[in-house]
């Protein structure tokens, strides 16, 4: 286990911090992080492209307040200079108890900046206790 952080790890962590900061305060602005061809899976919702993603983020999610608490961020570099990021965390919506979740991101450079190409979110709730 290396003590020094690899550059893609720093990049991944910075991205995750920024993503949730925007998600929890200004959800409609979040779409700016997605590449025009980005794919998005959020529980049963599936979308591709900024318009569809924005529609889900702003119109389909029925809570007013949300807070993400990240437990772990795991990163791997890809051959095309991208980073695969897996987030393990918990979130709290309005007055509900906290839910555990996992979220996977793939970020990659495009036009001198990093964009989100893939985003998959799933609550960690199960069919049996």
């Amino acid at each position: 286990m290396s003590v020094t952080k690899m550059p893609w790890e720093t990049l991944g962590e910075q991205f995750v911090t920024q993503y949730y900061q925007i998600f929890d305060t200004n959800r409609e602005q979040l779409v700016a992080l997605y590449h025009p061809t980005a794919m998005f899976t959020f529980e049963e919702h599936k979308a591709q492209g900024q318009d569809q993603i924005k529609d889900i983020l702003t119109n389909k999610l029925r809570f007013s307040l949300i807070q993400h608490i990240v437990t772990k961020i795991d990163c791997q570099p890809t051959p095309e200079n991208g980073v695969i990021i897996l987030v393990t965390g918990r979130l709290k919506t309005d007055n509900d108890p906290p839910h555990a979740y996992s979220q996977l991101f793939y970020i990659k450079p495009a036009n001198d900046s990093f964009f989100l190409f893939h985003d998959i979110f799933r609550l960690s709730i199960h069919d049996t206790v």
Binding site: F42, E44, K60, D96, L123, I125
Partner: peptide, 9 residues
């Protein structure tokens, strides 16, 4: 529920 229906889940 614990609010998961807000996510349709």
């Amino acid at each position: 529920t614990a609010g998961q229906e807000r996510f349709r889940s």
